[in-house]
Amino acid sequence: MHVTIDQDRCCGAGQCVLTAPTVFDQGDDDGLVRLRTDRPEPAVQSDVRLAAALCPGGAITVHDSNT
């Protein structure tokens, strides 16, 4: 699994950090999404999928092809 983010679409709701805290972070000052890793461990991949579904701005994309 490979994850990409689009900060332009981020609205700082924090759903991703609540759902998959080992993969997503928020900038201390702007509150916008950051990646801790773009290759999540298998154990957290279902959380990452849920985070992408819950993201209100559609800022998270999960790519499955080159796992």
Partner: peptide, 15 residues
């Protein structure tokens, strides 16, 4: 909307 909202997003981060 984003310009105004982003003045506040840093205040509501989980940390």
């Amino acid at each position: 909307h984003s310009r105004q909202r982003r003045l506040l997003t840093g205040d509501f981060i989980i940390k």
